[in-house]
Structures are given as C-alpha cells and as structure tokens.
C-alpha cells in the first residue's frame, strides 16, 4: 500500500513535470498513467504490486468529483438567461456523442470481425 502509493505519486509527479517541460496540452496525470502503463508492460511484477491499491482508489472514483461538483452549484447562476439553451445543448450533445461513439464502435468491430469477448473476458475478470 505504502510503496504502491509512492509509485503512483511518483508517476503523477513525473507526468506533471513532463507536461510542463514539454508544454503539451495533456494533463500531467494522463501522461503519468501512460508512463505507468508502459512501465507495467516492461515490468509485469510492478502491475501485481500496484493492482490492489490502484483498484482501491478507483473503486470510489465518483467520490473524488464531489468537491468540484459542489463548486458548480454556486456558479450555475453565471449562466443566467443562457441556462436553458446550454442545458439543452449539454443533454443533446452528450446523448448524441454516446450513441454515435457506441454505434461506431460496434459497427467497426463487426466490420473487422472482432467478436465481443464477453465469455473469455468474463472469466479473466472474475
């Protein structure tokens, strides 16, 4: 747990430093995740070490958005008269994007004959 958390923070730190140094528009933690994935591929034992801690943090990923969500409530007023059109745009575009992306994924998977690996995947996840 202690070592795993230290490794995760180190990768975040490296990601933040790299994002700043290279001035790229990707957040440090996303770069850190990419680097950690590369590290797992190079050293599979590292993945075994980090898996319990990583899964524990992710089990309550939703919780981590609560403070920012509370901040949103105080700013809803700033939308003013635009609140309704913006709400329609947000709901409409989110529904459209989810539907379009999911349909595209399924259609291309079918076209390239990539079966839905429900069965064998289920066993591995369990």
């Amino acid at each position: 747990m202690l070592h795993a958390f230290a490794v995760i923070l180190s990768f975040q730190l490296a990601g933040e430093a790299a994002a700043r140094a290279l001035a790229i528009p990707v957040p440090g933690p996303v770069l850190g995740a990419a680097a950690l994935l590369a590290a797992f591929m190079a050293f599979p034992r590292l993945a075994d070490l980090l898996r319990p801690t990583g899964e524990a943090i992710l089990a309550h990923l939703s919780l981590l958005f609560v403070p920012a969500g509370v901040g949103v409530v105080g700013h809803l007023g700033t939308l003013g008269a635009e609140a309704l059109p913006v709400a329609v745009a947000l709901v409409g575009s989110t529904v459209a994007a989810i539907a379009a992306a999911a349909l595209t994924f399924a259609a291309v998977a079918k076209a390239v004959r990539l079966p839905d690996e429900e069965q064998d995947g289920e066993r591995r996840d369990a």
């Binding site: 995760i8 923070l9 990768f11 980090l50 801690t53 943090i57």
Partner: peptide, 8 residues
C-alpha cells in the same frame, strides 16, 4: 493519483 491508477 486516481487518473494515474487508471493504468491498472
């Protein structure tokens, strides 16, 4: 850290 942990 949770974003980094998505690597798992």
């Amino acid at each position: 850290p949770a974003t980094v942990a998505l690597a798992v």
